[in-house]
Simulated scan of single mutants.
Amino acid sequence: MDVEAANLTLKDLTSPPPVMPWREFANWIRMPDDHPTVWGWIRNGYIPSHKVGKHVMVNVSLLTSQLLEKEWLL
C-alpha cells in the first residue's frame, strides 16, 4: 500500500481511540495486508494490549504515551 495515497485526515492523527481491536489497529496503522506481523508485535509485547473475553484490544493510549516518552537520537 502506498503511504502517500492513504488519505490521512487531521482527525485520524490527533484523536485516536484509547483502545481498539487488534485487527482494526493493524488496518489503522496502514498494515491491512500484514496482520501476522502486527499480531507478532502484540504477542512479543512490543504493542501494549489486553485480552477482554475472547478479544485482544490494543491500548492505543499507552502506546502513544510510550512513544512520546522515548528519546529519539538522530
Score class of each variant (00 low, 15 high):
Met57Tyr: 15
Leu62Arg: 15
Met20His: 04
Arg30Ile: 03
Asp33Phe: 03
Val19Cys: 04
His55Glu: 10
His35Trp: 04
Val52Met: 09
Ile47Tyr: 07
Arg23Asp: 05
Arg43Trp: 02
Glu4Gly: 11
Val19His: 03
Pro21Phe: 09
Lys11Tyr: 09
Tyr46Gly: 03
Leu74Val: 12
Arg30Thr: 00
Pro32Asp: 06
Glu69Gly: 03
Tyr46Cys: 01
Val52Leu: 09
Gln66Thr: 10
Asn27Ser: 10
Val56Ser: 02
Leu68Glu: 13
Leu8Glu: 07
Pro17Ile: 06
Pro48His: 12
Pro17Gln: 14
Asn44His: 13
Arg23His: 06
Glu4Pro: 00
Leu62Asp: 14
Tyr46Ser: 10
Val38Gly: 06
Asp2Phe: 03
Lys70Gly: 03
Lys54Ser: 09
Val3Asn: 07
Pro48Val: 01
Glu69Cys: 09
Met20Pro: 04
Lys11Asp: 14
Met1Ser: 13
Gly40Met: 08
Val58Arg: 04
Phe25Gly: 01
Leu10Ile: 12
Gln66Asp: 11
Ile29Cys: 14
Pro48Glu: 06
Trp72Gln: 04
Ser65Gln: 14
Met57Pro: 01
Leu74Cys: 11
Leu13Asn: 04
Leu67Val: 06
Leu67Ile: 12
Trp41Tyr: 15
Ile29Ala: 00
Ala26Lys: 02
Trp22His: 10
Asp33Met: 11
Met20Ile: 10
Lys70Val: 07
Glu71Arg: 10
His35Lys: 06
Pro21Trp: 04
Asn7Pro: 00
Thr14Gln: 13
Lys11Trp: 08
Met1Trp: 05
Lys54Leu: 05
Asn27Ile: 08
Lys70Leu: 15
Asn59Leu: 13
Lys11Gln: 14
Leu10Pro: 00
Ile42Ser: 04
Val38Ala: 00
Lys54Val: 02
Leu63Trp: 13
Leu73Ala: 05
Asp33Lys: 12
Ser15Pro: 00
Leu8Trp: 08
Trp41Gln: 15
Lys54Met: 02
Asp34Ser: 12
Thr64Lys: 05
